[in-house]
Design a protein around this nucleic acid. Structure first.
Lengths: 138, 138
DNA sequence: CAAATTAACTTGCAAAAAGCAAGTTAATTT
DNA sequence: AAATTAACTTGCTTTTTGCAAGTTAATTTG
């Protein structure tokens, strides 16, 4: 198992030691917001992660307790990846990334609309989403 | 100027295209929370960024409008790096990273205390900090 | 039920990024 | 005038990414 190396004990740095890269949070996003749960579904996302990097990140996220592997209900050939509580609790970070990008970066029309809705009622929406995700996870 | 390559128009992905690495947000943290504003101050942080990587990130953060370079009030030999509004508005992301790490990762005692305070009054503290930072920036 | 397809990886190799030590240049301090 | 400081740059090695192709087990198709 690849060991987590902490560069310091600053919480921001420690968080970035795990999720501070271009891909990890996109996998979390795909599970949390896009209903994706398998290797091939992750591969099909717009950002085009390389197969070896995806395999590497899945191992990493699992070894850090952010996702778990389960039997897929439909087929023994598939693996069902799901978020742990620790993984679900990354949602506020995704929300803030979304709001910041929505304000300062060029994003899709759909994202702009979603951002406006979010901005109006961030706390409630986040809380509600977390509750739903955690409940569905049991 | 290095061009921003967007992997998709998803806001999360677009945000990570810029700040999705192990170092960028630590520089932002150092300016925002640790009162650091110069190259040598950034170098001295606990995480020990390499000199060439630091130089690269400073150029990148500037070209993405997150920091600006100014004359240092004390000396012509120094460069004073400061956050733009866009940079200051990364604070909510730093806050959420802090809260998540505080909950799930081993961090310093001081960070635990800070996390508890933060958790109690996140919205107000964040708003207040942003206001102070933006005001001081004028 | 044999053949093709799908799912989840692994392997090999080239290119890009990170890490490390040392060097450069201008400004400042001693 | 000499040493130090500040902000980089350079060269080189190691690590990580990216890309194409290959593997194996399970599943679907004709």
């Amino acid at each position: 198992m690849k060991q987590l190396k902490q560069r310091s004990n600053c919480p921001i740095s420690s968080a970035l030691d795990i999720i501070g890269d271009k891909w990890s949070l996109l996998i979390v996003r795909d599970i949390m917001m896009n209903g994706k749960n398998t290797y091939n579904e992750f591969l099909k996302s717009a950002e085009k992660i390389a197969t070896n990097v995806l395999a590497d990140r899945l191992v990493m996220l699992e070894s850090n307790g952010i996702i778990t592997k389960e039997e897929h209900p439909d087929s023994k050939a598939k693996i069902y990846y799901k978020l742990t509580e620790k993984g679900i609790d990354l949602l506020p970070i995704l929300i803030e990334l979304t709001l910041w990008a929505d304000e300062y970066l060029p994003v899709s029309k759909a994202a702009i609309v979603y951002g406006k809705v979010l901005k109006k009622d961030k706390e409630a929406i986040t809380k509600q989403m977390i509750a739903v995700l955690k409940k569905a996870n049991k």
